[in-house]
Amino acid sequence: MTQQLNLTQEWDKTFPQSDEVFHQKVTFTNRYGITLAADLYKPKDQNENLAAIAISGPFGAVKEQASGLYAQELAKRGFLTLAFDPSYTGESGGTPRNIASPDINTEDFMAAVDYLSVQENVDPEKIGILGICGFGGMGLNAAIMDTRIKATVTSTMYDMTRVNAKDYFDAQDNEEARHEKRKAMCEQRTLDIKNGTYASAGALPDEAPEDAPQFLKDYIAYYRNRQRGYHPRSQGEGKGWNVTGCQSFIDMPILTYVNEIRSAVLMIHGEKAHSCYFSKDAYAKMIDGNKYTDNKELMIIPGAVHTDLYDQMDIIPFDKIEDFFKTYLK
Results as ranks from 00 to 15, higher is better:
91 E>Y: 15
222 Y>F: 09
236 G>C: 07
122 V>C: 03
136 G>V: 02
311 D>Q: 09
179 H>V: 15
17 Q>T: 06
255 L>Q: 02
25 K>N: 15
127 I>L: 01
325 F>H: 05
139 G>R: 00
155 S>Y: 05
262 R>P: 05
25 K>I: 15
314 D>K: 10
71 A>P: 02
303 G>L: 01
52 A>R: 10
271 E>C: 08
82 L>C: 07
251 D>P: 11
23 H>N: 13
93 G>M: 04
236 G>V: 03
91 E>H: 14
148 R>P: 01
134 G>I: 06
208 A>K: 05
308 D>N: 06
120 E>L: 15
290 N>L: 08
192 D>K: 14
31 R>T: 09
287 I>D: 02
285 K>E: 13
26 V>P: 05
237 E>D: 14
96 P>M: 10
329 L>K: 04
229 G>L: 00
172 Q>H: 14
33 G>K: 13
45 D>P: 01
295 N>L: 11
172 Q>M: 13
231 H>M: 04
292 Y>M: 11
42 K>E: 09
262 R>V: 08
253 P>E: 11
44 K>W: 04
285 K>C: 05
232 P>R: 00
176 E>I: 15
161 T>V: 07
167 D>F: 14
328 Y>M: 05
245 G>D: 14
152 T>K: 07
307 T>S: 09
243 V>D: 05
138 M>T: 08
159 D>Y: 00
143 A>S: 07
117 S>I: 01
281 D>R: 15
187 E>V: 12
301 I>M: 06
173 D>N: 13
153 V>M: 03
73 E>N: 12
281 D>E: 13
147 T>F: 15
80 L>C: 10
97 R>S: 14
330 K>G: 13
21 V>A: 12
229 G>P: 01
146 D>G: 03
194 K>W: 05
189 R>C: 14
285 K>V: 05
132 I>T: 01
105 N>D: 10
121 N>G: 05
135 F>L: 13
151 A>N: 03
308 D>A: 00
81 T>D: 07
77 R>Y: 06
130 L>A: 07
203 A>C: 08
230 Y>T: 00
266 L>P: 00
297 E>V: 06
222 Y>W: 06
175 E>L: 09
112 A>Y: 14
263 S>R: 14
219 Y>P: 02
275 S>P: 09
23 H>A: 13
45 D>T: 02
63 K>L: 08
190 T>P: 11
158 Y>N: 12
151 A>D: 01
166 K>N: 09
104 I>P: 09
19 D>P: 06
155 S>K: 14
17 Q>N: 12
226 R>Y: 06
150 K>C: 04
28 F>G: 03
290 N>W: 12
86 P>T: 06
88 Y>K: 09
203 A>I: 04
168 Y>S: 09
23 H>R: 14
242 N>H: 15
312 Q>P: 03
157 M>H: 10
199 A>T: 14
280 K>H: 11
145 M>E: 15
279 S>Q: 10
38 A>Q: 12
245 G>P: 13
299 M>G: 08
24 Q>S: 13
301 I>S: 03
2 T>S: 12
81 T>P: 12
313 M>I: 03
184 A>I: 10
27 T>M: 03
226 R>I: 10
283 Y>V: 03
45 D>R: 01
30 N>H: 07
196 G>R: 03
247 Q>K: 15
201 A>M: 10
237 E>F: 08
14 T>W: 03
60 G>A: 01
129 I>A: 02
267 M>S: 03
160 M>A: 09
287 I>K: 14
106 T>V: 08
52 A>Y: 04
222 Y>A: 02
